[in-house]
Each structure stands twice: as C-alpha cells, then as structure tokens.
Simulated assay, not measured.
Amino acid sequence: MRRTRTTFAGIVAIAAIALAGTPSRGDDGPWPVARAKAWGEAHPWLVGCNYCTSSAINQLEMWQAETFDLPAVDRELGWAHELGFNSMRVFLHDIPYKQDPEGFLKRIDAFLAVADRHEIGVMLVLFDGVWDTDPKPGKQREPKPGLHNSGWVQSPGRAILGDPARHDELRPYVVGVVGRFKDDPRVHAWDLFNELDNPNANSYGSTELKDKADRALDLLKKELAWIRPLNPSQPLTMGVWKNDLTDPAKLTPINKFQIDQSDVISFHNYNPPDRMKADVDALKKYGRPVLCTEYMARPNGSRFDPILGYLKKEGVGAYNWGFIDGKSQTIYPWDSWKKPYAAEPPVWFHDVLRRDGKPYDPAEVGYIKSVTGAAK
C-alpha cells in the first residue's frame, strides 16, 4: 500500500463526518476537532524532513525558472524514499509567483509529480519570517563559506511586511497557490507562516522591523481570511516555536492565536528528549493531531535516536531540519554567524546525507530506517 495515500480507516472516518453533516471549516475558524482527527486517521504517521534542493541556496533559487532543478529533486527524493520518508516540508516564496504565476504553479505541479512517484507527499510553507529581510529576484548570491543558511530569505521581505497597506499585494499569491492545489492529495498540509515573529537576533537583527511581530500577525490574520473561503481539503497549520508551550497561561499572544486557529497543531523543538516530551504532552491536550515540523540539532541533544522513535510511538508527525549537505550549508551550527567555520564541523548540526547520497552517519541512517520500516 502506498504510504502517503489516505488509509481505509481514514476514508471511513471522513465519510462518517460528512454523513453526519459536520462542517469542514467555517470562514472564521478552524476545522472542528472531529474533522482534524479524521485527517489524522487518514495520515497516521507523517515522517520526513524540511527539504530544499542541494543546488539551491534558498527558496528563490529552488523555484525560479532559471534554477529550478527537477533532476536534483528526482534524485534526492529517491534517496528520501529509501529512508522511508513519506512527507517533505517545502518552502515556497511569493516572488516567483509575481514573476510568472502560471509558470510557478506548473513548477510546483512538476515537483509534486516527482514526489508522488517516490511515494512522498508535501507540506507547503507559504511565508517565512527567518533570515534575510530583503529578498531579491534573479540570480542569488553564492554561499558564504562555513556559514549556516548564508543565503536563505524571508517571504515576504520587510518592505511589504512592514507596510500593512501592501499586505493585499500578497493575496493573489496565496489564493493562486492554495486555489490551484486545495484538493490535491499530493499536498498533505499548508503551513501558513514559518516562525513569523523570529527576530533573527544572531543574523539579520540589525535590519529587522521593530514591530515585526505585530505586522506578521496582521498578515497571518489576512492570510487566514484569504484561504478559509477556499475551503482546502488539507489542514492549515502554523508552527509554535518559542517560549514555554507547557503552560497555557504562559503562551505568547501569537502562540495562543496559532494554536487556537490551526486545524492541526505543529511546533518546533530543537531540544533534548525530555523537553520534546514536555511539548508533546502539552500540545496533545488540545485534542488535535500534532506535527513536529522542525527538530534535530545534534550538538543540542536533539538527535534522531531516540527522538524519532519517540515521535512515532506518540503518533506525532516528524520533520527534521535538513536533508542534503547542499548550498544552504546547514551542517554548520547557528553560532557560525558569530564565527564562521573553516572546515566541516566534527559533528554536523543538521542534514542526513552528503551530496552524493552517502550518509553522514551510517548508523544513524540505519536507525532512521528501522523506525520508518524502510529497513525491511
């Protein structure tokens, strides 16, 4: 059976809800919990990684027509399939849509077709609040040696994000992409805005908006208003990523909004197993499927073994950061922004495979396959 297609139990659950007349989603709120649970039964354990082609330094280089590298996608998603991965979290960007809407949509479709051939579904990320505040179309810069994510860009850039009067410029992109793929089974979920309030203090903090959190929340609310009338068959999510998630009274206003408005709940955790468990226990109390959309930073104590096995046992979706040691250079740690590395670090921060598909750590890959079932 294809791992990422709707299971028989999931079909039964969804059909039961439809016959009961439960609405799928209101224009002003998330799915009912029963609908979210039915989606979870249809997708019992999503496992994969955050993926960018090894030949791309950022989302623009990945998706612009001149540098869209479908052969690399085919090769690398083949390796992902061999690991037992059935889902990938993939970042889009608003600029390629502005450049050529139909061309961009065709490239997304081509990407999804290749992923589907490798039995992999995709979580698409629409906006991103991390790294370079000023994305520019066209040829992207070359990687800076020894520097983690030296060319990743935000979407939208600060010029649009910081001006609420310009937020509506993004509506055609959001509606165009979601509208095209809203009933496509190859799309597992929509992640609306990655780390929208990240201050990027260690990298681009000096260029960040002083009121970024407020402006990003403004845009997120508009994004929800644009998408919900489309009624996509896939769930909407927006990952909580900072501060204490274990005490509802300590949630930031943004974290509370994200949890309250998500069809399924997603979160980021780069911490050791005990803190991962604390977040999982806390987020499961909301009664919705839970997805960890970022984890695995080896020097931080966030490693596949034992966290991947734990997430499977708990039925929590698992997307580690990074796959191939490519132009994004995320084998280097976050602190490389303070002191770039002169050589490959003795312990990789993120990523699983080298560019030729060989594992960074064969024992680690063996563990991944044992958990996903690919070892069989």
Rank of each mutant, 00 (worst) to 15 (best):
G326R: 05
P143K: 10
L192I: 13
F104G: 04
Q154R: 15
Y341A: 10
M88V: 08
L147G: 02
K284R: 15
L209A: 06
K285S: 05
P44N: 04
P359C: 08
H93W: 05
D305K: 15
A249Q: 08
G239I: 00
K312H: 11
S155I: 05
P44Q: 01
P362R: 11
A343L: 06
A38H: 11
W337V: 01
A159D: 08
R288Q: 03
K98E: 02
W79Y: 06
K210Y: 09
I368K: 07
E119F: 11
W321M: 01
R2Q: 05
N194T: 01
D132Q: 12
L170C: 10
P273H: 06
D214W: 06
H81M: 04
W31Q: 14
G40L: 01
S87N: 15
D27N: 14
T53Q: 13
D191E: 15
Q154S: 12
G239K: 14
G239A: 15
Q140R: 09
R158S: 07
Y97C: 02
L70C: 11
F257E: 00
K284T: 00
R288Y: 06
W348S: 07
P362I: 02
L126T: 04
A343F: 09
G317F: 04
D28W: 12
S233M: 13
E364L: 12
V175F: 10
D191Q: 15
D214S: 06
P199S: 05
W226H: 12
K210C: 05
Q140K: 07
R5A: 07
F323M: 10
T372R: 04
D260H: 09
L217F: 07
N255F: 07
A13C: 14
V114G: 08
S87R: 09
G138K: 07
G10K: 14
L209K: 08
S336H: 07
D244T: 06
R5T: 11
F111Q: 04
R158W: 10
F111P: 12
Y332V: 00
K144M: 10
S328K: 09
A18D: 12
G10D: 03
E314N: 09
A18H: 12
A9S: 09
A189W: 03
K212W: 04
K277I: 04
T252F: 12
G315S: 13
M62T: 01
S336D: 01
P30N: 10
